Every structure is written in C-alpha cells, then in structure tokens.
Amino acid sequence: MTLAEIARELKVSPSTVSRVLNGYSKNFGANPEMRARILEMVEKTGYRPNPVFRSIRAKKNRQIAFSFYSRSLRQNGETVDRALDEATRILEENGFTFHYLFHPRARVECYPVPEWKVAGMVIPDVIDPAMLRLIEEHRCPYVTLNGVCGEAGSAVMSDEPANIRMVMEYLYRLGHRRIAYLNSPPVMERHHSGIEREQGYLDFLNARRLPVIDGYGITPLPVAEQFELVRRQSATAIVTFQLEIAVEVLETAWRRGVKVPQELSVVTFDDSWHARHTIPPLTCCKIAANEMGKETARLIMAKVADPEAYKTEMFRFAGEVIERESTAPPPKA
C-alpha cells in the first residue's frame, strides 16, 4: 500500500500522513486521534517510506548508491559479491539505506551521477579512473571496490601482487619448477587483477631464474588448447586466473588421462563453494573479501562525514592459500 492510498483510506492529504510519519510538528498540527489512526494504518499495512524520495527531502542524507557496470551481479564475481554483503550489513547497522544502479555503458563512456541526491557511492570493478569523471566533477563522495579510483575517491582492492606471490611460493616449496599460468579471458584484460597476477607470475619466475611457460598472456584460445600448449612444455603445475578456467583444466586433464595432482597440480583464485566440491577439491588463494567489505563501509561512512578524507588513497588486502587435494609435489623424473 502506498502513502497516497493510506491518505485516501483515512480521508486526509498525503502530506499529513508524511508529516506524522516523519514526526514534524513545526507549523503543523494533527489531533492525537488522527495521529493514532495514521500510525495504526501504517502498522497494519506494513508501509515503509521510499528511501529514495526520503533522501531527496532530507537535510541529513543517509542514502548510498551502489553503481555497477553490468545488469548481472554475477558478472562482478564472488569476491565483490561477498564484499558487498559485508559492506551493506555494516552500513545498515549504522543507519544507512542503499540502492543498486546499473550502467551497462559505464566502461564505454563513464559512470553517471545518480538522478537523486545521495550521501555517497560505492562503485565495484572500475578499470579506468577516467570512467569516474562525472562523479568527480559532481564532488560526490565515493569508494571503489576491487577497482581503481580517481583523485577524489578511495579504493579498496585485493593485494594481487601479494596473492600471486603466495601461490607461486607455495608451489615452489612443493618442488615445482615448471609452473604455467592461464590468464583471464579477454574481457578482464584491463582489470587490475588480471594485469597484476600476470606480472607477479613473471616477476617470480625471473627472480628465481625459472623458465617462463609460454601461454600466460591473454588469449582467445579455448582452455583445452592452452592445456595442451603448456603440457607440451612439461609444466608440472598450472595456476589459473579464475575458478572457471581451473574447472576446465580439471575436465581436460580427466579427458586426457592426466592425473591431478599426481601428474599435474592445479591452483586457482577465490575460495568458492564450487572450488571445495570439484574432483579433486581445488587448492585456492582465498581473496580477503570480508575484510574488503568492512573497509569499504568504513571508508564511505568516513567520506560522507568528511568528503576530503582519504582522497586518492588505496587500501589493499592480501588473501591466504587454502590447500586441498589438487596440489602435490611434482612427479619424479
């Protein structure tokens, strides 16, 4: 039931219902009986004020806009999904309301400013600060999650150089010296995670004078063909950019009769439910999504209170390696 419908039912104006619900008393009077009838009807119908309309009128705005480049939240991946769950939980506990906005052309043009007044914005997976031009011009406080920020914003990111280093060191300790890396799909090429994991892979091999297994770059090749390419180079371990690639690696290994982990170790990023239930269960680098969500909430609340706070600052969080049955020492020659 809407506010207008409640007003019609009680034969009063919508503004009277609104003022009673918001506790207004200045230059406004409603007898106790009418107040009681309005509040009783609101309780009975379960009516809740629209937070967007309320934010337009409010002097103290508590509305946070979450702005996405895709209409499909799955496109943002499990890291962002879990981080947003934590951030919204904390914001709600602190009296903030929020809504989601979807801008499929954000990566072609730029992220637009919300059409109504908001206290601040959280924007996941920004790949280029230029995409934030309008928001910066509007001086809207914002935090990017799992992406880069502009001059006025703050960024909360996974520490990908640390994460790939942990994975490589783990395999190195197991005895692997021929380690392949299967990179992100072309759509992720410009995201910081794809760039930094690939560079960290190369830096680790170069620092230890280990061979670089060809096939680590962005490629349109199917995973099965990438698998054959790195196996021809005697790779004993494969690190994949994301879970979907690791699942295809496991399937291809099974179809080719390659035993995991006896003949080939496989490691991926993010510790999702699916990673725990593949055959064999996958060793993963667990991304610090909860910590990223907590920091996102802390930062946007701080920037709402003081828009000058934490400008251009980047906050990174390293994950941890979760060892499972997809990894083992390399086979003996």
Rank of each mutant, 00 (worst) to 15 (best):
Q242E: 14
L3A: 04
K59A: 09
T16E: 02
E251G: 10
Y310Q: 08
E325Y: 05
Y69S: 13
M121N: 04
R298P: 00
R89T: 03
S184L: 09
D159S: 13
M301I: 00
V113E: 03
Q226C: 07
H192M: 08
A328N: 08
C285S: 13
I195A: 03
F96W: 11
E9A: 11
E43V: 02
I164T: 14
C140K: 06
L282V: 07
G95C: 07
E323F: 02
N22C: 05
E43C: 01
A58M: 06
E9H: 15
I164E: 02
S72W: 02
V167S: 15
C285T: 06
R165M: 04
Y170S: 10
F66L: 15
I127E: 12
E93G: 14
L182I: 14
P51D: 10
E33G: 11
T268N: 00
V148G: 04
M168K: 03
L134P: 11
P129V: 01
D159M: 04
K332Q: 14
R82N: 11
T240S: 11
V260M: 12
T252E: 15
Y111Q: 08
A235R: 02
S55I: 01
I218Y: 01
G319I: 09
F28T: 01
F315R: 15
L84G: 02
I135C: 11
P220N: 10
P114T: 02
H103N: 12
R105K: 13
L282K: 06
Y111G: 10
